[in-house]
């Protein structure tokens, strides 16, 4: 397996579905960070078969819960002094702004580009989000 050095202080985003890391990288604008960021694609996983991992060589303050709709299984691991000090599962937020887009061609957002894409959680058990404008449910392709 490809060897990437461990973090001394930073964040590991683990259990991203295989192929999903770049999407997360882009949503979090990680290209703007000055620190090292490693993207590991198609790593072996007992639970998932294959998975992606992102390692960020710095502690950053971001609400990762917004990504729950894209990566419900993703875990956030906080590393300090080379040790994992905290592991978090994502919690589904009540509202999501600007992460996902409404795909309904009949939605008002399809013709008014400046409208922010807003979704509300309508079924926590099944993780169903609906567009605030047209109420179309967001279908996660994973």
């Amino acid at each position: 397996m490809l060897n990437i050095g461990g973090l001394n202080e930073g964040i590991v985003l683990d259990h991203i579905h295989a192929g999903g890391a770049m999407e997360i990288y882009n949503y979090l604008n990680l290209e703007k960070l000055d620190c090292s960021v490693a993207i590991i694609k198609n790593a072996k996983s007992n639970k998932m078969g294959r998975k992606d991992i992102i390692k960020i060589d710095q502690l950053i303050d971001i609400d990762f819960n917004m990504l729950a709709v894209l990566e419900p299984n993703m875990t956030i691991n906080y590393i300090k002094n080379g040790e994992r000090v905290e592991k978090k599962q994502l919690a589904l937020p009540e509202k999501i702004y600007g992460i996902i887009k409404c795909k309904n061609p009949r939605c008002i957002t399809s013709i008014e580009q400046e409208l922010p894409h807003r979704f509300k959680l309508t079924n926590r058990e099944k993780a169903i989000y609906r567009c605030e404008y047209c109420e179309q449910s967001f279908k996660n392709k994973k």
Partner: peptide, 25 residues
């Protein structure tokens, strides 16, 4: 014809807005 248009109107309006039909919504 677009779904959610009256909702957009309602959040920007100073008068009551009644949805008289928005697409198939």
């Amino acid at each position: 014809p677009k779904e959610g248009a009256p909702y957009v109107a309602s959040i920007n309006s100073r008068i009551p807005v009644i949805n008289a039909g928005d697409g198939g919504h």
